[in-house]
Nucleic acid binder design. Structure first.
Lengths: 129, 129
DNA sequence: CAGTATCCAAATCGATACTG
DNA sequence: CAGTATCGATTTGGATACTG
């Protein structure tokens, strides 16, 4: 009989764990705090550059642009230039981006729900050390 | 009447979006590819250093140790030294880490399920540029 | 408003050599 | 086996100044 196909997580040969697999690129695209913050923020209404700059605490214009461009290049974010004067540009999620946003929102929520526990654990570790 | 308390995502003042909020630290802890790969790998059985080194494609000893220590310090991973000769050390998830692993697995799975779409979008973008 | 361009300090990370 | 220590190349990212 053929060996049972194990679940991806049980056996690491699966996919993202394999450097070089295309899914690893996607993981790296997503594994950064600005993407983790921006993508969920883009749900619902489209957002403008300055708006994002204000809402994403601590981000610089450089990183905002860079992250948005990267997300756009990978089909997650759509950029719409209304071609007005003064300029008005809107960013929103593509359907694919919307799908991703559900997953990333879960990460954000986990962070918010558990930061107290993490902080406590860190305190305890520091006390030990 | 009091203004309706908006959902965290609808209004960014919430939490992770606020630089300086403790939950942001948690986000940064998790927003890195090695954590995203290691935490889900630790589900089920405990894993050893060399085992992880092999399973997590592309990671170096340095990054493995560094990531494990960081996760340990924050209460997500438990390190057990069996104190044998030759050394035998096992890493496993704490209950908190197990909780996180469910969220992170979803990210990994999304990457695996959608990398073809992302690749296609990127191709298209390149063709355009 | 919505960016781009540039400089440069700091953080990241792999490779290598070494230890208990 | 399970690390630590160190060096140096690369990357990252903020600040600042400028553009259409």
């Amino acid at each position: 009989m053929p060996s049972k196909k194990s679940s991806v997580v049980a056996d690491a040969a699966g996919d993202v764990w394999n450097a070089g697999c295309p899914s690893r690129r996607v993981l790296e695209l997503v594994a950064n705090k600005w993407a983790l913050l921006i993508v969920p923020l883009l749900r619902g209404k489209p957002r403008r550059n300055n708006e994002l700059l204000r809402k994403v605490g601590g981000i610089s214009q450089k990183m905002l642009t860079q992250t948005l461009r990267e997300l756009e290049q990978n089909g997650l974010v759509l950029r719409e230039d209304l071609r007005t004067v003064p300029p008005h540009v809107e960013y929103r999620l593509s359907p694919l981006g919307l799908s991703l946003s559900r997953t990333l929102m879960a990460v954000d929520r986990w962070a918010e729900a558990n930061h107290a526990r993490i902080d406590a654990a860190q305190q305890a570790a520091r006390a030990r050390a």
